[in-house]
Amino acid sequence: MEKIKAILAVLLVSILTMNCIAQEKLVITPGLLSAQLTLTPSHMFCDKQSYIYLHGSLEGYVTQKLSITGEIYFNAGSLSKSNTFDYNHSLFFGSNWHFTKVNNDLFIGVQPGLSLTKINARNNNITESTAGVNPLMSAVVGYNFYVNNIFHFFLQTRYIMGEHNYDIHKSLSELRLSAGLGFNLNTKKLF
């Protein structure tokens, strides 16, 4: 009798657990809007320096596999005392392709962009420097995990290609890493 009760209990727990898995709510659907704000460290390959950016992004899922995204990086400082740039702010716009499984989302993307840069005159041995706008190209790979309809965890690596062509020529090739907690909203459920 005790054995039968134990078997029934195990069966009941199994059925309940399977039901929970089957009912896990799908967050990644067309109309999902995702926003992120984080501090991003980077490694710039010319002069081998590191910068810190305030990184914000807004992404809209057109389908479950495709999203359109806009991202902004505000240069918040440098980890080096002899930094090459006074600032290197940048803006990107493009699309990401998603490989999703339930609420796990691995993505890759290509995003062109623009940067606003200014060389540090003293560290580069020139009398003065001017700010300039430079075209950029970037490739991004990342992972999102959508916890529920409100939050998600994100991790993203971006490789940037470009050139600073004012005062002194410098390569803007850089690797940036972002991670943190983002907010999401399903806009189709609002209307």
Binding site: V62, T63, K65, L66, I68, S95, W97, V110
Partner: peptide, 8 residues
Amino acid sequence: NLSEKFDI
């Protein structure tokens, strides 16, 4: 043509 309205 990645979707009805979006293309690269």
